[in-house]
Design a protein around this nucleic acid. Structure first.
Lengths: 259, 259
DNA sequence: GCACAACTCTGTACGTCGTACGGAATTCAG
DNA sequence: CTGAATTCCGTACGACGTACAGAGTTGTGC
């Protein structure tokens, strides 16, 4: 049994954070030589998050990794919230450059596959909100890249935005469910099989939970469950969904750009 | 600037939690009359989460609302993680009963709309993972209800599961982006407009962030941004995506169930 | 009627977190 | 060479979940 909650922090002035994102801070003219630089902090935080999840990214632990006292991190980063924002933009920097010359369908497919891979390299990206943090150079480039895939195919501006967020939303949603499960296995120390082994007898003792009350679920759930354990399933669900979504977009584009 | 992270808890024995979900705990025979019951705790927690977000659901605050000491909550609930699980199933209980007799497209539409509404009533549902917690009666019923919409239309079991998770994933993804933003406005005390008012001059001072480097983003972003402020936009993005997804599913169903 | 087991409730305490505050040490501009 | 700017750090505060031990309350078995 596990519940995962998100906590948030909302901050004040964006100036400092934007300067850090774009790397335009004037170097200090006085004072001791800094032992570190902001990118060191960001990279260390990303490494920690990759290895142990976003909850391992605490000011204290990042500082420890860097051989520095916790409070001195605040020299390089205004606070934990902004550190997370920097991590996001850093990760977006790993996305490949746009694939020019492809048709919109191939381009959207490439975008989806690249993000799918990115999210699996950095699962913590799904545990962090992206809303206003997307003001960094790499996040800008990502959005531009996504839009270019559907530029000039007959869609309006608002539709272009909607199509892009449909595809990226699909990637995030499917990646989330498989990665949430993987994280659960890690943190609970129980595989799905072990979990069910323990849960099944308890459920069996509850009349209302009888399979007869849930005929379709128990049939489909069994098939899907076996498939889930096959380990290639998350990718299947992703590509299945992507195919449907692209077909749906194609139907729309067909009405706009005849031929 | 804001970052939102998720923390998690993974637990041990599911027995107690499942018993609580299905309400099959034997009433105590000895000892003082309990001042409360588990559902009281769950309802109070849901009220708190609705009003102030999931981060307001702390053992201490729930206890305070109930006029009880923090530690005595552990009489009714094994821990915070299980409380979140109970909240999820409680919320799923609000979903309307299945709409029989509709075609699969109308049924999936109704399911998506109902979940869209539910997520807006209880935004914290998006800040909590659903993986293994979905063992309660209402979550079971939800899954059964969803599958029934696509039963008997020519899809295989694994495909049925994939279609259902495609649709619910879409709802969650689109609801998430609009609700994340709403939460950000609440916690930062800044509307998007105020935010941009402050951020724009900073970005303007950064050559690399010039609009010329991001021609499509700046055009589409402006259109989409104005639309976003129109307040009916999140629903548009949702319904736009839903229409595409359903079209895509229709294409698949057409190949399976000819006629 | 009584002793004890079962149960509820609570206060205290531990280890975690982000980070405010104030001071010491270091470097460069004047 | 003085003082301003900057880095670094120790301490401390208020939150959090919850382990633990005890006090109070109730029904059961005799």
């Amino acid at each position: 049994m596990a519940g995962v909650s998100t906590q948030d922090n909302g901050d004040g002035d964006p100036r400092r954070a934007i300067e850090l994102l774009w790397g335009v801070s004037a170097p200090p003219r006085r004072g001791p030589k800094p032992k570190l630089a902001t990118p060191d902090v960001v990279k260390t935080a990303v490494r920690l998050a990759d290895a142990d999840g976003i909850e391992a990214v605490t000011i204290r632990r990042v500082a420890e990794q860097l051989g520095v006292s916790p409070m001195s991190l605040y020299t390089y980063v205004p606070g934990r919230a902004e550190l997370l924002d920097l991590m996001i933009d850093h990760a977006h920097g790993e996305l490949p450059a746009p694939t020019e010359g492809l048709g919109w369908r191939a381009a959207l497919t490439a975008i989806a596959e690249d993000q799918w891979a990115l999210l699996h390299r950095h699962p913590w990206l799904l545990q962090v909100t992206t809303s206003r943090s997307a003001l960094g150079p790499h996040s800008f480039a990502k959005y531009e890249h996504e839009l270019r895939a559907v530029e000039g195919i007959g869609l309006g501006d608002v539709e272009m935005d909607a199509v892009v967020s449909l595809v990226t939303g699909l990637v995030r949603a499917t990646a989330r469910s498989s990665l949430d499960n993987a994280r659960l296995i890690r943190t609970s120390g129980m595989t799905d099989a072990q979990w069910w082994e323990r849960a099944a007898p308890v459920l069996a003792g509850i009349p209302a939970a009888d399979a007869a009350h849930y005929p379709i679920s128990s049939r489909v759930g069994q098939a899907a469950g076996q498939f889930h354990n096959a380990a290639e399933d998350p990718a299947y669900t992703f590509r299945f969904g992507l195919a449907r979504v692209l077909d749906g977009i194609e139907a729309l584009v067909g009405t706009r750009d005849p031929g």
